[in-house]
Design a binder for these strands. Structure first.
Length: 816
DNA sequence: AGCACGCCGACT
DNA sequence: GTCGGCGTGCTC
């Protein structure tokens, strides 16, 4: 006989596949609904914020249910579209709903409890009779409420739970669960002069009037000073009170001469200037074609060469959507979401623009989330964001723009869900019956194929803005220069001559080298030993400025060894080269040129990134050396030359996408050459000038590139003609891993036959002490991918049952 | 993910 | 012999 009463299946931020069912207390039954947040106790003491997935009455007799502790909101935080999307992602990308939940909500909305240890003041006997316990108790007594992790840090012991338990047993302490501090909206008090006194005469009268209260007069004077003639903007209370008496300010507020405003500084926004965008005939035509594709309910791929003015078309489409009261999502890869584009859109759409970026604080992300949730009337009608912004609570999405569609940073790698934001966006748009526009100068092979097959519609924008000519591309043969012995450091004479000419003509140079650091690695000249990372299977990259060698996988850093670790000889050389070496060499060869470097090392902070860009844009620096960061949405006017220092490095990367990536990267970097002024030049250095990809780049030959790539992918069974799932299996012990990996691949072969490849040793076969083997599953397009995933899921489940939990298994669907 | 339980090696 | 480390399994 099932007990009556309502139950809720709750999504918790755990790795577990299953949901947990809680009983809804009587008084919460009227409020509880799917998508609402709940606070529940999980296990002995921990509290989590969960999300109600479903409400039902199917209680089972043998199951005990805990009650939901509380419901913090009065309406759902997650809407039905989102819940549907979470289900889709968990199923398609083969992860748990909890993992999707973790990725989907900003952490400010997922509060967790933390156990605090509290000293029992009533505890009579200060000694437990155990010396070590006494010292632990002393530490607890000296801290008012200490967390377990802090205690283990202070005692220097990893395991302090047993001590805590003992102390608990003799009543010396008790535990309290505290929800970590809720995000309070950040507020700033602003002081605003009443409008009555904005006018000159009235203000003078007021000054007269305040003659008797000199302190208040000071305040007014200071306000006038600070406001720069704009009395309506208001001054932060803090700023004003820095030099004048706060109590005098308060008296003025009481008299209603000053008004007090409470503002959230992160919501400060420029108001829309709302200039209508005018389009040139080419853009007009493209816009028309895009709409035709949308009318067929298809995804539209906008292939526009660099600086063909795609953004204006986006703005036009966004404006139309907003007029219809629909929401717009504008997705950009992380690196392309710069101040340049944000400012541009804010100018047009003002406070209706929400920015969702990982560099923004959690508070700001919570704000954007809530704004989108509140609907487009007063909330953000347009969201400009990185991949995770597909998770925001849209209720009436009309359009999704995926800019730089080909970018692989749209694919999340770690942790799960390993989703591709472009693909998720297409699914999300399907739920909302919204349109999708993919924009890029170098489409991904997948999207190109989707256009060829008729799944997507293709619109091309071929003319560059202002009739700027495509750059002239020259290929310089490194091999030949080496033979003739006329290489100077890493430069061929061709590149050097062009640099010389460009710099002396007062124009700028961009040099592209897709590797940071000084050299790739150090090598002992005597025994050939190469210093490697302790925990990862990679050689350490030499960084000259810090005189250190660094692991680019885990960040492990050590000083440059004075002598070889192996043979103790002091003759150690550097091999390969990175951006750091290139910029040093230029400093030597062109002593008058000002060189800057743009890579992960030089631009860790937003500020330094923007400074580097700004200095180059304003002509402060002449030469910019950088990694692929250079290729993303940066517009410079005076670049006369782009040099690609080593094309082979990218082309020879052992991955089926290496050619595609090289082509895209070279095309994108080349697009930086020659803007407003005359035609730019590009020099590509390579040892293999006959490589077809180099030819396609030189000839700007998209058609042949895609034709060749697509036939190659077809021949060798690679996406988009098959779907890939990569199963990565990891263990700290190699001799545990190898048999496990072959056992898993064998059981997979029983089901999938020769669709299973591997296990193979990846290029980086050990990361952070974990050895890695990969198994690849290729599912041809015509068979059911859904069924394949279900079979794989059960195979892995069975495998995990039979094997130890120390094996880590990670599944990557559509790996990048 | 935590947290409890249980097994095993290192030291009082 | 006990303490502390770590692997395993469970949590509504």
């Amino acid at each position: 006989m099932p007990e009556s009463g309502y139950l809720a299946d709750i999504i918790l931020p755990l790795l577990t596949e299953k949901l947990f069912t809680y009983r809804i207390p009587e008084e919460l039954i009227p409020v509880a609904a799917p998508g609402m947040r709940v606070i529940v106790q999980f296990g002995q003491r921990k509290f989590y914020t969960g999300i109600i997935k479903t409400i039902h009455q199917n209680s089972s007799a043998e199951q005990e249910y805990k009650f939901i502790t509380s419901i913090p909101d009065d309406k759902p935080l997650v809407n039905d579209y989102q819940l549907k999307l979470w289900d889709w992602i968990a199923d398609y990308y083969m992860c748990s709903l909890g993992e999707v939940y973790k990725a989907a909500l900003p952490s400010g909305l997922k509060l967790e409890s933390e156990s605090k240890i509290i000293y029992n003041q009533e505890y009579e006997n200060p000694s437990t009779g155990n010396a070590r316990l006494d010292t632990v108790l002393e530490i607890i007594r000296n801290h008012s409420a200490i967390s377990i992790s802090d205690l283990s840090r202070l005692t220097g012991k990893k395991e302090c739970m047993s001590d805590v338990k003992n102390l608990l047993a003799c009543n010396a302490i008790f535990l309290e669960e505290k929800l970590k501090e809720t995000l309070k909206p950040k507020t700033e008090r602003h002081v605003l002069l009443s409008e009555l006194y904005h006018e000159e005469n009235a203000l003078n009268e007021l000054f007269e009037h305040l003659n008797k209260s000199p302190k208040q007069k000071d305040v007014l004077l200071r306000y006038v000073e600070l406001s720069n003639d704009d009395y309506s903007a208001g001054i932060p209370f803090k700023t004003l009170s820095a030099t004048v008496s706060p109590s005098a300010i308060n008296s003025l507020i009481k008299k209603n001469i000053f008004l007090l405003q409470v503002k959230d500084p992160s919501l400060e926004n420029s108001t829309a200037v709302a200039k209508p965008v005018s389009l040139n005939p080419g853009q007009e035509k493209a816009l028309h074609e895009i709409k035709n594709v949308f009318n067929e309910n298809k995804v539209c791929l906008l292939h526009g060469v660099t600086s063909s003015g795609k953004t204006e078309i986006y703005i036009h489409l966004i404006q139309e959507m907003l007029l219809q009261g629909k929401q717009v999502l504008y997705l950009l890869p992380e690196i392309a979401l710069t101040t340049q584009i944000i400012e541009r859109l804010k100018k047009v759409f003002g406070e209706r623009t929400g920015i969702y970026h990982s560099r923004f604080s959690d508070r700001e992300r919570v704000n954007v989330y809530n704004n989108v949730l509140s609907g487009s009337e007063q909330g953000n009608g347009i969201v400009l964001g990185v991949r995770s912004s597909v998770f925001l609570p849209y209720s009436k999405l009309g359009l999704i723009i995926v800019d730089e569609e080909h970018e692989n940073t749209f694919k999340q790698f770690d942790p799960a869900p390993r989703y591709h934001a472009r693909d998720v966006a297409i699914v999300l748009a399907g739920f909302h019956k919204a349109n999708v526009l993919l924009g890029t100068a170098t489409p991904s092979v997948e999207s190109w194929e989707n256009c060829r097959s008729g799944k997507f519609g293709l619109v091309e924008l071929k003319t560059r803005f202002g009739e700027i000519k495509l750059p002239k591309i020259v290929v310089a043969n490194i091999k030949e220069s080496k033979r003739k012995k006329n290489m100077k450091s890493v430069f061929t004479p061709t590149l050097l001559d062009e640099m010389e000419a460009t710099i002396s003509a007062g124009r700028q140079v961009i040099l592209f080298q897709n590797r940071r650091g000084y050299s790739s690695f150090l090598e002992c000249e005597v025994c050939g030993h190469i210093p490697k990372c302790k925990t990862c299977d990679v050689s350490l990259t030499y960084h000259r400025h810090t005189e250190s060698i660094i692991c680019h996988y885990c960040g492990y850093t050590r000083r440059v060894p004075g002598k070889c670790d192996q043979c103790q000889d002091t003759r150690i050389t550097t091999r390969g080269f990175g951006t750091e070496l290139v910029s040093d060499e230029i400093g030597l060869m062109f002593p008058h040129a000002r060189v800057a470097r743009l890579d992960l090392d030089s631009s860790r902070s937003v500020k330094s990134y923007e400074n580097i860009i700004h200095d180059f844009a304003s002509g402060k620096t002449n030469v910019l050396v950088g990694t692929q960061m250079l290729s993303k949405g940066l517009d410079f006017d005076n670049v006369g030359l782009v040099g690609i220092l080593n094309a082979d490095q990218m082309l020879n990367y052992p991955d089926f996408r290496a050619y595609e990536r090289s082509f895209q990267l070279m095309m994108q970097v080349s697009g930086r050459a020659g803007r407003r002024a005359e035609r730019g030049k590009v020099v590509i250095q390579t040892s293999d000038p006959a490589n077809p990809i180099i030819r396609f780049v030189r000839d700007n030959d998209f058609q042949s590139f895609y034709k060749e790539q697509i036939s190659e992918r077809q021949t060798f069974n690679y996406p988009p003609f098959v779907r890939l799932i990569r199963i990565s299996i990891r263990h700290k012990e190699l001799n545990e891993l190898i048999p496990a990996a072959s056992s898993l691949s064998n059981s997979m072969r029983k089901i999938f036959g020769n669709r299973v490849l591997g296990p193979q040793e990846p290029i980086v076969s050990r990361i952070q002490s974990y050895y890695i083997r990969n198994i690849l599953l290729k599912i041809e397009k015509k068979s059911s991918f859904e069924k394949a995933r279900a079979l794989l899921r059960s195979t892995i489940r069975d495998f995990q049952k039979e094997n130890s939990g120390t094996l880590k298994i990670l599944i990557d669907v559509d790996p990048a």
